[in-house]
Design a protein around this nucleic acid. Sequence first.
RNA 1: GGGCGCUUAGCUCAGGGGGAGAGCGCUUCCUUGACACGGAAGAGGUCAGAGGUUCAAAUCCUCUAGCGCCCACCA
Length: 849
Amino acid sequence: MNVPDEPSLEGLEAAWGERWEADGTYRFDRSKTREQIFAIDTPPPTASGSLHVGHVMSYTHTDLVARYKRMRGFEVFYPMGWDDNGLPTERRVQNYFGVRCDPSLPFDPAFDVSGLQRPDDHPVAISRGNFIQLCEQLTAEDEKAYESLFRLLGLSVDWTQTYTTISDVSRRASQRAFLRLVGRGQAYTAEAPTMWDVDFQTAVAQAEIEDRETEGTYQRIAFDLQDGSGSIQVETSRPELIPACVAVVVNPSDERYAPLVGSTVLTPLFRVPVPVVAHALADPDKGTGAAQICTFGDVTDVVWWRELGLPARVVIRRDGTLIEGRFGEPGWESIDPEAANAAMTVLTGKGAKQARRAIVESLREGGWLTGEPEPVRHAVKFYENGSRPLEVITSRQWFVRTLQLEEELLARGREMHWHPGFMGARYTSWVEGLNQDWALSRQRYYGVPFPVWYRLDADGEPAYDTPILPEESVLPIDPQADTPPGFRAEQRGEPNGFTGDPDVMDTWATSSLTPQIAGRWEDDPDLFGRLFPMDLRPQAHEIIRTWLFYTVLKAHLEHGSLPFTHAAISGFVLDPDRKKMSKSKGNVVVPTEVFERHSADAVRYWAGSARLGVDATFDEQQMKIGRKLAIKILNASRFTLGMEAEPGSITDPLDLAMLASLREVVRDATAAFDDYEHAKVLDLVERFFWRLTDDYLELVKQRAYGAHGPARAGSAVAALRLALDVLLRLFAPFLPYVTEEVWSWWKEGTIHRATWPDADEMAIADGADPEVFDVAATVLSAIRKEKALAKVSLRVPADRVRVRDTAERLAKLALAAADVREAGNVVSLETEEASEASIETVLGAPEPA
RNA sequence: GGGCGCUUAGCUCAGGGGGAGAGCGCUUCCUUGACACGGAAGAGGUCAGAGGUUCAAAUCCUCUAGCGCCCACCA
């Protein structure tokens, strides 16, 4: 026993952090079987920037489960990943070093970063290889900072189990998964209209799109019937796409337009003859009920275009500007090509917004405009990281078939255990709303390349239908650097030679494999067999449609199973004004300062009191309470362990009652933890702890000092030590530092590998009545109240205390009467049977000063 | 437009058919042989609103309002 005189929280994080690392306390033992293992698919944080208190909360939630399961005897696989793959990293490197990637440049082995850090200059063009070097260099620094913060927070991660999403292991897994999708016909390449960001100049997937309320205008425009018999009014927010108009569509049941279906109208300004067609998606209640179909203004246009078999006239370039007029050419028929091209000149080279203004003027001058443009606010689709609305651009991309999987994926969602349960609805609603296959290609540089080459024909044109794929054994490969089997390097780009697929995969193609990557899928089949499917995926609700969905999709297609059986969804952290904390709002709290002010245990206490799925308010007050609790644990433990009486057999009814009560706490807390209700566990345990210190400890203090002889003192001391032993373990997942500190005073080994308390440890209290404790505490509390109201010291004697209650409760009080008398300094404790309970206290004179 | 969640004391939140709760904050008191980084106690609420079910509703049902989030084909 080694109890310090003045226990303190200061320095615990550093001391125990080092000790846990040195002892390998959280090291994963891979010799265990799947049944003995609890595997966690840790979210890899994006390694570009810094962690904030939102991370602190959600990662603490995961750690609570990890520590609980470990104490329950599971061997916990708790790895850490760093997401250093993808656009955020790419952008950060561009800004940080002032460079841009030019894939046409050759790799420069002698490249020196030091001359580069001039972000205000024009960006320096560097090769893809050098660019990736810089990405790795910068993210390595971030990862170090993240790790030290996570260690400070006390995450029980096995730091030997780390991975990065751009590593060879991750690239190999991504490419292997891709090849298998291709092999099964689940991935395909096609030239197809796809959502496109004109600034990043890349395709984006449905999951990366968000709606933003945007200012726009509706203009009502006349489309003349070609036979001169009148016109159709069309309302549009995108008049700049009139040159791309290929039809006017109405609802088949719309009587206003029924006679016109099948006739031909001329587009304004460009005088292109286009048909009036009917389709169920045309909404009679929107606008005039007649809409222009353009190639392509939005996803609906794509549906109409495809289902109605319309031609395409594309007017928007990949950079978002409009093309030059080519009316009069095949496919660009106009009854007045000269006028059409003149009208186009005004738009050429302009972005959508400017072109819109320009064409409205032309329309007005030409008399096509009906009324004035009407300002509206409407939802417009943006890439989540983008600044200009998405366009629909036709380009060659790889896709993963998802649309026909809806029923199977919904079934997977039902198979999953969601915590909290209602979060499953997010997944369901996403799967039900899928309207495109997963667009997998990104026209970016930093990422996992497609392991694909294409043969070039005699004219140097790629044969996309017969891609050349590598053997899995050579992965990962870079088709820009590596040569496909059967070709020589010099044949790259030559007629009858080959070319590498220039694109990289969507980052989610890699992130959706985190269970496989962390589990070394195919690289270490023995390990993978012990880990997969994993047990727990912790994550934020905002990425259910991306990370969770894609991970389920990949596992479903590759393994025919869920990737994990439980999904625990944490909420956001809100600032005190109840706004979500985010970098862009500038209201993030830097975690390191919070740790310094309150201690890691205190911060974990705050995080642990927030339930899963519920947004939590950032509340330093709550951390102060956590700190107070941690200090109280130190002091109460010191007191308990410092008692001189020898612990004996526990025989006193009050002691047994306290243990009977603790027994219930253990049962309830265990059940709650099994249900992922960590906040309830903390509440139960904390509540009991305060009862123990405020009531029980006060009640038995004098007896423990020996007021009634060694045997009864021994009962109190033994009960207290047992309660402390159990409580420390109940608190251990929440307050790993302070509980480990106290544990080290009197126990061997680490508390974090100790066994989670079992109700049977209090079997001695079997048959004991917890109400003895309640009744005694109630009477003590009433005596305290009298003293507080009389504004006297608690030491002042109570000459007479008369308790009226039922015979049953009075009998219970009698069992603890001696303790109550001493704790309340009661001279005479009288009882009287009564149907109405009451406690009457007559105070004695204060002691003379 | 559809869905999910929330609305309980000044604040942060638990509770979920039968007593309106905790902590903080506030007020008062107490330096009692673990702890003043402490302790004891007090005041404070029409459980968002309206209907309904029930012997009994903060709790179940319906509707309404406000807030938040997720989703939706931009005419």
